[in-house]
Amino acid sequence: MILPTALVLLAIQVYPALYTLVLSVQTRRPAGWEFVGLRNFARLLNSAAFVESVGHTVVFLVGYTVLTLVAGFVIALLLNVKGALSRFYMTLFFIPWVLADIIVGVVFRLLVLPDYGLLAGILQNPALFPPNGLSILTADAARPWIAGFPFPPSPAMIYLILASAWRALPFTTLLLLAALQTIPTEVLESARIDGANTWQTVRKITVPLILPTMVVALFSLTLGGMNGVGMVFSLTSGGPGNSTEVISYLLYSIGWNRLDFGGAAALSLLIGLVNLALIMGTLRITRLQHEAH
């Protein structure tokens, strides 16, 4: 009964992964594939595009995970208050989750369309964004504080982070809300009787109790953020310049624009290793949680 599932998984998950490993030490010549050892990796690690895209990815991931987690936690806390119409709100909050990332990119692009977008009036106001207003998808980044590291990020990157967080928010909120609901009300009540105020209760009791779930959410957001690429396609296409070229988009452009399959295989493998570490971390935490219960 398990055989068909096992065969599909072998063909679609295991075999291509091993194939990628084999391709990563070869390069394509007119005559066919040729073994080049670790030269693909060396070429990749020494390329400016790779180094820059790692910087963009780090900035993106930090902004995206922190924003999503904080907003998700606050909303989950509100939804967990007794008497909140959480079912009703969850339904509305969840609509962004069923939208494809391509669609979300388009929706956010329409909002800032020069002159005509709903937010154009605010963004193009010179009083708010001196001297000439802000064209969010074409404005260049400010001079980096540290040479070579893309911080402060370009307006397009900030906007990409916002759009991505908007889409990831529902799932994160659901995850955190489910964790909040496992906290026995007696624990919170006794803290209140002992004189703790809301802020103290949240910081000293709620956060420590749902910390494992927060870490799981952090890993899953990082995994999704590093591998999700649709929104970059429809929102920024990596631009302006290369300021939103994150590592997943770089993989696409190495493999399918430059047709450098060896280089793309090497990059797939590197991203895959990070993915593996994140997945192992998640499994460890959930296992520890199960043992604790």
Binding site: Q13, P16, A17, S220, S248, G255, S268, N275
Partner: peptide, 20 residues
Amino acid sequence: FILAITGVPLLTNLLGLYQM
């Protein structure tokens, strides 16, 4: 094994699948 590959994103396998 199935649990471990539950989180694996499509992205890193795309090249292998494309060549396949």
